[in-house]
């Protein structure tokens, strides 16, 4: 067995075990309604986590995405309120903006050899500030097209709703998996995460890869912003504070090494669903404070960091 896949198996195991445990208490949790909601409620997080997975695999980090999601929501809401543009046109402009924003951060990180942490932290403040600039208040989105997007779903057996944004998240994960595991760009990302110096000697185009990775993360943040706007029906500059950290947590719980170079896109999906499951469980229980979500996620993170450390030690001893 490949030792690299061990954290992934652990993630899957934990998810299945947690689901079984929840099921034993609340059999309804296995209904298609709950599953449909699980996908819908976590769609924006899942999409942004796809971008984050790639960034972390490359050995970097992107702290700007939470703010970019908020900016996206406000941008969409304000554009729809103040201009006559069709939402699809607004989406296109937005995605170009956020992709360019991410790519610009990638360019700075590569050219100035600056830590991704600092550059994307600056990006975070920039994006959040830009969102305030557009509107401090929450702006409702009333365009009829949004109503269509919100009510676009397929009824699953058992009356669960498979929504458009839920499906979109799954599709994004599929694309993410292909990019990470089946393209030369994906291999370059893993290579950079394994060691930038060596990767360069092997012919990895470091600059281009870095720009693309952060550009992709920006694109995902923008897409996540669209999904979040559809989900909430409004744009609010104070929304999704800390989402970047939740996304990082999902990636790590999904078995990706925070230092880069090792992990699987699929693991991140399981990580996102695990976090969603915890939340669902707490809602089902009804007596627990919602803060328990944070506590359990904190513990899970700790477990995974310990697991990864243990695996590293083991493989070093070989």
């Amino acid at each position: 067995m490949n030792a690299r896949a061990l954290p992934l198996y652990a993630t899957i195991l934990i998810f299945v075990a947690a689901y079984a445990l929840a099921y034993s208490q609340f059999p309804n949790i296995l209904s298609t309604r709950v599953i449909g909601n699980l996908l819908t409620d976590n769609a924006y997080l899942g999409i942004v986590a796809v971008g984050m997975t790639l960034v972390i695999l490359s050995g970097g980090i992107d702290l700007s995405v939470g703010a970019v999601i908020a900016f996206s929501g406000v941008f969409i809401a304000v554009m729809l309120r103040d201009t006559g543009l069709h939402p699809l046109a607004v989406f296109a402009i937005l995605l170009m903006l956020t992709t360019a924003f991410g790519a610009a951060m990638g360019f700075l990180i590569d050219r100035l050899a600056m830590p991704a942490f600092i550059v994307t932290l600056a990006g975070m403040f920039l994006a959040r500030g830009a969102a305030y600039l557009l509107s401090v208040q929450s702006v409702p989105i009333t365009h009829p097209f949004f109503g269509q997007l919100q009510s676009a779903y397929v009824l699953m057996p058992g009356k669960g709703r498979l929504t458009l944004i839920g499906v979109l998240m799954l599709a994004v994960f599929a694309v993410g998996m292909v990019i990470a595991h089946r393209t030369r760009f994906g291999t370059s990302v893993y290579a950079l995460g394994g060691g930038a110096q060596t990767a360069r000697l092997m012919g990895v185009p470091q600059g281009r890869t870095t720009v693309l990775v952060y550009g992709f993360s920006g694109l995902m943040a923008g897409l996540s912003g669209i999904v979040f706007a559809v989900y909430t029906g409004s744009g609010y500059s104070l929304a999704t504070v800390g989402t970047e950290l939740t996304a990082i947590a999902a990636v790590v719980i999904g078995g990706t090494l925070l230092s880069g170079g090792s992990g699987y896109m699929f693991g991140t999906l399981v990580g996102v669903l695990t976090m969603g499951l915890i939340q669902t469980y707490i809602v089902f229980d009804g007596t627990l404070s919602s803060w328990w979500t944070k506590i359990v996620i904190g513990l899970l993170l700790l477990v995974f960091i310990l697991l990864q450390k243990g695996l590293l030690t083991l493989s070093a001893r070989r």
Partner: peptide, 26 residues
């Protein structure tokens, strides 16, 4: 000067992977 976190095949073939429809033919 190879990458321990990639597979032997990936290390050997990096930059020259056989591709089908633009994707790496593993």
């Amino acid at each position: 000067n190879l990458l321990p976190n990639l597979t032997v095949a990936q290390n050997l073939m990096f930059g020259h992977e056989p591709r089908r429809f633009g994707l790496i033919d593993t």
